[in-house]
Amino acid sequence: MSLPIKEVVLGPGEGSHLTIGNSQVTFKAVGTNTDGHLGLFEQTLPPGGTSPEPHLHRHMEEMFYVLEGEVEILVGEQTVQGQAGAFVLVPRGTPHAFANRGTQAAKLLIMFCPAGSREKYFEGLAELLKDGQPPDRKALVELMRRFDQEPVNI
């Protein structure tokens, strides 16, 4: 049985915040807000900020919309230098990654469809990275696979 979807209204900078390495994530809408249909997160990446390795999702699409700065987005076999206003849709099963290789901070929106409990992956990742050391590889891959994220070697 689905729960009714209720309004979510957030001002600039509002939402639940999380630090992942040296990047900041703000949850704008999570699966529990949307009956699992979608999740929308805002991520701020400093130059060289913490970014994911190439990976794919088997059961969800992921979308990126660059708000500020420039974000390098790998999607399939192409690399996009996404400036403010750039949008990339990553179909399920498509290898992808993103990073800020520039000299200015960047901000992007990340949407997942369906969302499930995608925020739990980000919370787990923040925990693995909290001491500033590279995470245990086995624990990282286990976390990824628990939340529909499969590492790929490109």
Rank of each mutant, 00 (worst) to 15 (best):
S2I: 01
E7S: 15
V8R: 13
V8D: 02
V8M: 07
G13T: 11
S23F: 03
Q24I: 04
V25C: 01
K28T: 08
G31D: 15
T34R: 03
D35C: 08
H37R: 07
H37M: 09
L40E: 11
E42A: 06
Q43L: 11
T44P: 05
T44Q: 14
P47Q: 08
P47K: 11
E53K: 01
H57M: 00
H57D: 00
H59W: 01
E61S: 00
M63Y: 13
E72Q: 06
L74H: 02
T79L: 13
V80L: 13
Q81H: 03
Q81N: 03
G82N: 03
V88D: 14
V88A: 14
V90A: 12
V90C: 15
G93L: 04
F98Q: 08
F98L: 13
A99P: 04
G102N: 14
Q104S: 15
A105W: 02
A105M: 09
K107G: 04
L108R: 09
I110D: 03
G116A: 03
S117C: 09
F122C: 02
L128Q: 08
L129T: 04
L129I: 02
Q133G: 10
L143R: 08
R145P: 01
R146E: 15
F147A: 06
D148T: 06
D148L: 03
Q149K: 12
Q149F: 04
E150C: 00
E150D: 05
P151A: 07
